[in-house]
Each structure stands twice: as structure tokens, then as C-alpha cells.
Design a protein around this nucleic acid. Structure first.
Length: 283
DNA sequence: GCCCAGGAGTGTG
DNA sequence: CACACTCATGGG
């Protein structure tokens, strides 16, 4: 099945290659492949048009892609609001195609629990291991991310053997603590309450909670602060301190679209570390 | 082989 | 509230 969508602006390399997702892979032809709620999907651009190839028989794939890439986000408006920040205004325009993604809440929660104290290649490997071990086979070598019920059947020891290390306990705990009813409850909460609720889970602290709020629950005001954002805030804004202090600064400065500001800063800082073009410069 | 990772939990000052 | 220490492994 093939669809054509108009989601603009959109840069697939920027959006899918900057650490928001752990299971999307770039093919040699530049197309990106991943799984959206049980269906294999391949995305590529043909001019300004986004083309999506999906598993035959997949239902509502078109709207799932739109949800995943947050087609409703008005990037021009978001950048206009963030543009009142002179630091962002300088380089943001060159990242118009970088969109926040909307992941499945459950997959997002587990993925970022795994992300603690691990590098991105390893995180990808752990998430992939869970999928191939407990997910449903979609096609050759491609598996869906296991739902809570399926993952709950795995013992902590089994999970540890998959290479999760001490994170195995947290994943196992999350499976037994959260259910669909709880997820429904969380979806209705405001950002602060949602955040507090997530932090109650073992293995979920400030940063993971904000990642799940932003990428899983679509709360654009969330501003996850990892080591890269810490460096960016220190280097560009001269701000240092505790998580709560930096979070308050970001909230005051970037407001309801702080999540987008975070992605711009994050991407910029990583590019800078790789010695590539740096768009935001210290004053 | 060595170093350290999109942090979190726990204990201490 | 701020810091220090540990955590289990495997990419780079």
C-alpha cells in the first residue's frame, strides 16, 4: 500500500536521526523504515511530497503517519513564537524540517527507561532485542514492540540476559505497575501531574519523565534536560544548576513550545560535538 | 583493554 | 538542596 502525504516542512534525516526514535532505520536509498502500531512502514520524500509504503492490509496507516510526524504542528507558528529568543532565532530557520515525533506511550516509556546511562547505539540495540524476543513478527527480521501484557511475561532474569543490565528490574516493575486503565488516566492529566505520575515509576526520574511527556504523550511544553542540553544551556545561556532550576528557566524562556526549543538545542549541540556546522553560537 | 554512556537511586553533609 | 557514589554492560 502506498500513500502520499503533505506534511511540511519535513526533513526525515533530521527528524528520525536525532535520537527521538530508536527503531527507525535509514536505508541506503535514503528512505526510513520503522514500525507504526504493528505495521511496517517505509517513508521517503519525492520532492515536497512524503511517500509512505506500508504493510499490505494495514489500516489507517495514513492517519498513523500523520500522528507520528505530528502533521498538525504549525512549524512556522512555533518558530515565530520561539523566535523571540535571539539565540534560537539565529539558527532555527535552518532546522524547519525537524519535527517532534509522537511515539506510542508504552514503547516510549520503556525505551527511555532503557536510555539511562547508555549510549544511543546501545539503546537501539536493547529496544530491538525486546522487540525481536517478545514482539510479534511482522516480516523478515521486523517485529512489533511488545505490548505490556506480553512483556510482563518475561522474568527479570530473562530481561537482564537480553543485555538490559540493572534496567531489567525497572522494565519488569513498569510492566506490573502500569496497565491500560492507568495509561488512559495519564493521558487526561496536565503536564505537571503527568510528569509527577511518571516519576513514581521506578527507573523514571526527571529526565526520563520529560522525554516520555514530550515524545510519548505529546506535551510540547516538556523540556528534557540531558547532558547535551545541560552543555547547551551552560554554553549559550550561562545557566547551570539543578534539574528543577534549569527546567524553570526553560519553561519561562521557551514556554508552551519548549519541547521544540529542546530539539533545536539538542541537535545543534550534537552537531557541534561532531565538528559539524554549529548554528547557535555563544554570545 | 579502556572509557564512558540521552540517568536514577540511595545515602550523607 | 547539593553533592558523591554506585549501578551492569557493551559500543566506540
Amino acid at each position: 500500500m502506498r500513500f502520499e502525504l503533505e506534511i511540511a516542512p519535513l526533513d526525515l534525516d533530521l527528524t528520525l536521526g536525532c535520537g527521538q526514535t530508536f527503531r527507525w532505520r535509514r536505508g541506503p536509498d535514503g528512505s526510513w523504515s520503522g514500525v507504526l502500531s504493528g505495521d511496517n512502514v517505509r517513508l521517503f520524500k519525492r520532492g515536497a511530497v512524503l511517500v509512505a509504503d506500508a504493510t499490505p492490509g494495514g489500516r489507517y496507516v495514513e492517519s498513523r503517519v500523520e500522528e507520528f510526524l505530528r502533521a498538525g504542528d504549525d512549524i512556522a507558528r512555533i518558530q515565530k513564537e520561539l523566535g523571540t529568543d535571539r539565540m534560537l532565532a539565529a539558527g532555527m530557520a535552518r532546522m524547519k524540517g525537524l519535527r517532534i515525533v509522537k511515539l506510542d506511550e508504552w514503547e516510549c516509556l520503556i525505551s527511555f527507561i532503557l536510555a539511562t546511562y547508555a549510549n544511543i547505539p546501545r539503546i537501539s540495540k536493547m529496544v530491538e532485542s525486546l522487540a525481536s524476543a517478545y514482539g510479534r513478527r511482522i516480516s523478515q527480521g521486523v517485529y512489533s514492540f511488545p505490548d505490556r501484557g506480553r512483556l510482563a511475561k518475561a522474568s527479570e532474569r530473562e530481561l537482564a540476559r537480553l543485555g538490559l543490565g540493572y534496567r531489567a528490574r525497572y522494565v519488569h516493575e513498569a510492566c506490573t505497575t502500569i496497565d491500560e486503565e492507568e495509561f488512559g488516566h495519564l493521558r487526561r492529566m496536565g503536564y505537571e501531574d503527568l510528569r509527577d505520575g511518571l516519576i513514581e515509576l521506578p527507573g523514571v526520574g526527571d529526565k526520563v519523565a520529560d522525554c516520555v511527556c514530550l515524545f510519548g504523550f505529546g506535551r510540547l511544553e516538556a523540556f528534557p534536560i540531558d547532558v547535551w542540553i545541560e552543555r547547551a544551556l551552560s554554553r549559550l545561556y550561562g545557566r547551570k544548576g539543578s534539574y528543577s532550576k534549569l527546567r524553570r528557566f526553560a519553561s519561562d524562556r521557551f514556554g508552551r513550545y519548549a519541547g521544540y526549543a529542546q530539539e533545536y538545542l539538542y541537535h545543534n549541540e550534537r552537531m557541534r560535538a561532531q565538528g559539524q556546522a554549529c548554528l547557535f553560537l555563544e554570545q
